[in-house]
């Protein structure tokens, strides 16, 4: 009984380390192939459209909604202490430091990461990647790189959109509905925000989350079992693993960056 448990733990650890090794090798191959010509501009633009432009509405609406909720909650809290003029700071810090990058990354994982895994997984199941290998075309180069690069570039851009719309949402509630002074909202926000730590930190997070989403979703696609059950398992794995990695990485970056 105890031995069995130790056995299982050992096997799980080995599997974990093995997959860590595999994903590192895969990441190395992706980076190597990204730097190697040709740059497949047309395919990259197609991916940017699919992953970025088509995610605009979900990211935009979520950003606005989250900003409005934070604005409302923040006002209700601050007004008790008579410091509702600090609403801009309240909304700004929660959005820029945490909610902006994290929520954008989680939404993108569900919206674009899972789709990428499912697409590549279906290509594995229908032997399209084997077909490429037979033509001596590296699937990492032709299939993975445009998608991974697309996801990587799109994450910080959409994070910026989320943050701007969330700040606007907070403004809308605070100034438009609750009557906070517009000058105080913007002025206090500007004064409190420190560009090199807060704003740059936000984008550091967004870049790292972009790496995680693009790496995990393409890796899960390429290593997917070649059947429909495999595709569905890989898609689920992408959402679960990428979300967890994002949240854990968020803590580590916050701790190290010293927000």
């Amino acid at each position: 009984m105890v031995l069995r448990a130790i056995d299982n733990l050992g096997a799980a650890t080995i599997r974990f380390i093995e997959s860590l090794g595999a994903i590192s090798l895969f990441g190395g191959a992706v980076i190597g192939n990204t730097l190697r010509p040709p740059l497949r501009t047309r395919m990259l633009i197609k991916e940017l459209y699919k992953q970025g432009v088509q995610s605009l509405s979900i990211i935009g609406i979520s950003g606005l909604a989250v900003g409005m909720v934070i604005g409302l909650q923040g006002y209700n809290t601050l007004v008790r202490y008579g410091s509702e003029n600090q609403l801009g700071v309240f909304v700004g810090f929660s959005i820029v430091l945490e909610l902006g990058p994290v929520l954008t990354a989680l939404l993108l994982t569900g919206r674009a990461g899972s789709a990428t895994t499912a697409e590549i997984g279906t290509m594995v199941a229908t032997e399209q990647l084997d077909g490429l290998r037979m033509m001596s075309i590296n699937p990492v180069n032709l299939v993975v790189v445009p998608r991974a690069l697309g996801l990587f570039l799109v994450t910080p851009l959409l994070t910026a959109l989320f943050v701007v719309l969330a700040l606007f949402g907070g403004y809308l509630i605070g100034v438009g509905m609750m009557g906070v002074d517009p000058g105080a909202y913007m002025g206090n926000l500007q004064e409190a925000m420190d560009f090199p730590t807060d704003v740059v930190g936000c984008f550091v997070k967004a870049f790292i989350f972009g790496c995680l989403i693009s790496l995990i979703s393409t890796f899960r696609g390429v290593t997917c079992a070649p059947n429909s059950a495999g595709v569905s398992a890989a898609t689920t794995a992408t959402v679960v693993q990428a979300s967890l990695c994002i949240l854990i990485a968020d803590y580590i970056i916050t701790a190290l960056w010293g927000f």
Binding site: M123, T126, E127, Q128, G131, L132, R133, M134, M135, S136
Partner: peptide
Amino acid sequence: VRAKLGMMFQGGALLD
């Protein structure tokens, strides 16, 4: 070696 081979897969394996 693969440069000397052409393969037609059972399901076509065309890029969709």
